[in-house]
Design a protein around this nucleic acid. Structure first.
Length: 423
RNA sequence: GGAGAGAUGGCCGAGUGGUCGAAGGCGCACGCCUGGAAAGUGUGUAUACGCCAAAAGCGUAUCAUGGGUUCGAAUCCCAUUCUCUCCGCCA
């Protein structure tokens, strides 16, 4: 949620930034400001009423103590009137406050000024690409065929036991998963992140804190009886650690990394996008999260971008980095880099990571703050990124490294798998 | 799952109708003391919103959450949520 003060004091800038997301917010911004004026008036009226009532209550107490019961009783009459008024004033204030809030939560985060304009993924800006495109041998096939050829991932078994999108990993496939998780976590710890194992289910307040609720609840699995949500990403529990927290500025940046299973209902997905490992209902991901001082969050974003690039380099995968255009960015992000690896047999680029700066958008919702040098309480900036999501990494590793003898494992990873070839 | 107890500030903990945003302690910050430190000592130390050009100051709300009783609620009543203890079950 955008900060009200920012909207109030920099209305034009907010509108300008939202325009990058192709949103004409001038109307809604104006509405927010108008309601704001009325809301403040309403609060003033209510506060005055309550102040008078409080004063009378004090007097009444005083009068009773000194035995002036009749005077006290006279004052009670006035308070009875005030109380009736207060109810109306409170209702009026609540109504305006809610109305304003409803408008505020509709507004997406404001993009950074460097975000390219555009509407569709075609308008994303390729800011970097590296690695060599693999030359596949003649018998090369997509990863879903490799999965059954080497008996390392079993989609059929998943269908039987659970349903589509819940594969079994077996033998060298299972080992490869474990190796990747270890590899990603070790790298992150090496880079100064604190390793955390979070709960895989969260309560409603946490879902709201990171923005999955209220609108995107259809994308999460929900345990009705316990009112708990299965996490779609470790970002949710990890960021919510800091909900309603005022951190010490000396502790910034806070760097956490977590491996978790991720659960996504992916309602409405279909076609070639969901084939094989391309889109699953349950998958593994290592997520990095940073909480940073507002002045330094963009430096941090670049640091995180370089970190993720380093991982892909070590895995010897050809990749490119996109700076998402306004139209393709998420609701909550100010600037997002997507990482895509090339999966040679499918001849497609697959998104394997998304690194974003949310500025104070999430922090405002979560009331995550710090005290600055003047002792003023301010909102932190939050950032996160996948580092990395496993399934598409596995897809491209399998496809790109297949040979007639088997599938080669990159050297950096072979230390973790214990083998350098899937046969 | 059964029975009981509880939820107060960063933490511990007092507070059973008014003067309580809340004693006391710990922690933290700053100062004094010291050659330096420890000890000691003094002061300060919640958040949000509003009023004000702004600082100072003032007002309002917040003692798990929501409602109620009352002139007045941390304190009384009701509901909800959560936590703890014991028993049962169990990795």
């Amino acid at each position: 949620m955008l900060e009200l003060n920012y909207i109030r004091e920099n209305t034009a800038e907010v509108a300008e930034r939202l325009a990058i997301k192709n949103i004409d917010a001038s109307g809604i911004l104006q509405q927010i400001k108008e309601i704001d004026i009325r809301r403040r008036e309403a609060q003033k009226d209510l506060d005055d009423n309550l102040a008078e009532a409080n004063a009378i209550a004090r007097q009444v107490g005083e009068l009773f103590k000194t035995g002036k019961a009749s005077e006290a009783n006279a004052l009670k009459v006035r308070n009875a009137e005030l109380k009736i008024q207060a109810k109306e004033l409170q209702d009026n204030f609540d109504k305006l406050f809610l109305e304003q809030n409803n408008l505020l939560v509709q507004l997406p985060n404001v993009p950074h000024f460097s975000v390219p304009r555009g509407k569709t993924p075609e308008d994303n800006e390729i800011v970097h690409s590296e690695g060599t495109m693999p030359q596949l041998y003649e018998g090369a096939v997509p990863h879903w065929d490799l999965a059954s050829k080497y008996d390392i991932i079993d989609f059929e078994l998943g269908n039987k036991v659970t349903g589509a999108g819940f594969p079994f990993y077996k033998g060298q496939g299972a080992r490869l998963q474990r190796a990747l998780i270890g590899f990603f976590l070790d790298n992150a710890v090496e880079a100064g992140y604190l390793e955390i194992q979070p709960p895989l289910v969260v309560n409603e307040a946490s879902g709201y804190g990171t923005g999955q609720l209220p609108d995107k609840d259809g994308q999460m699995y929900y345990c009705e009886v316990d009112k708990l949500y299965l996490i779609p990403t470790a970002e949710v529990p990890i960021t919510n650690i800091y909900r309603d927290v005022i951190v010490k500025p000396d502790n910034l940046p806070i760097k956490n990394v977590a491996y978790s299973n991720c659960f996504r209902r992916e309602a409405g997905s279909y076609g070639k996008d969901v084939r094989g490992l391309n889109r699953l209902h349950q998958f593994d991901k290592v997520e990095i999260v940073q909480i940073q001082h507002p002045d330094k969050s963009y430096e941090t974003l670049e640091e995180m971008r370089n970190y993720v690039a380093g991982l892909l380099r070590k895995l010897e995968l050809p990749f490119r980095i996109l700076k998402l255009c306004g139209g393709d960015m998420s609701f909550t992000s100010s600037l997002t880099y997507d990482f895509e690896v090339y999966s040679a047999a499918q001849q497609r680029w697959l998104e394997v990571s998304s690194v974003s700066n949310f500025e104070s958008f999430q922090a405002n919702r979560m009331k995550l703050r710090f005290k600055d040098q003047n002792g003023k309480t301010r909102l932190c900036h939050t950032l996160n990124g996948s580092a990395l999501a496993l399934p598409r990494i596995v897809a491209s590793l399998l496809e790109n490294n297949q040979t007639s003898e088997g599938i080669k494992i990159p050297a950096a990873l072979a230390k973790y798998t214990g083998f350098d070839m899937i046969r």
